[in-house]
């Protein structure tokens, strides 16, 4: 499976939210309304983020990859959130550390063996400075998807 199969303009959000709860509610509710996740997904995302935070610091600004167990997911999808005001997440991994997040990839995932390519693409995008700058300057949902796809092609061809 490739990234282009799981993203869409309808799953892109420009958000002005105060905290992670409000962020998760907006993005998860939309996934649920489209039938992509179950009603248990939102609560599971919140709980999971508390136990195992998903913020990641990059050179420019923080990114978060909220996700939860496959049992809450109907169909694989990735929702993209561009935050007008940064929201504080905890950093993934060993230490306790705050990260100011401006870009969110909310993952609705099922089998790990199917999604290595998708996840590797997301990881290479967030390590790409030009992508990170470009994506936060987008002003429409279509522009965000086009930017993701353009940079996906570049990073895939660079890896070959």
């Amino acid at each position: 499976m490739e990234l282009k199969n799981v993203i869409s303009e309808k799953l892109v959000f420009f958000l002005d939210v105060r905290d992670t709860d409000e962020l998760f509610e907006t993005m998860a509710t939309s996934l649920q309304e489209k039938g992509l996740v179950k009603s248990s997904y939102l609560q599971a995302i919140k709980q999971r983020e508390k136990e195992f935070p998903t913020g990641l610091a990059t050179e420019q600004f923080g990114v978060a990859l909220p996700h939860t167990d496959a049992e809450h997911v109907n169909e694989e999808a990735i929702s993209i959130g561009i935050l007008r005001q940064p929201v504080t997440f905890q950093h993934m991994g060993m230490g306790v550390q705050d990260v100011e997040v401006k870009l969110v990839f909310m993952l609705a995932l099922q089998k790990p063996e199917n999604q290595l390519e998708v996840l590797q693409t997301v990881m290479s995008l967030i390590q790409n400075k030009a992508f990170m700058e470009a994506v936060t300057k987008c002003t429409s949902e279509k522009e965000v998807i086009d930017t993701v796809l353009n940079f996906t092609e570049v990073s895939v061809s660079n890896n070959k």
Partner: peptide, 15 residues
């Protein structure tokens, strides 16, 4: 290992 066993551990395992 990761929190769910499906996302970040998949990327790390691949690498």
């Amino acid at each position: 290992m990761c929190g769910t066993g499906i996302a970040t551990s998949t990327v790390v395992t691949g690498k």
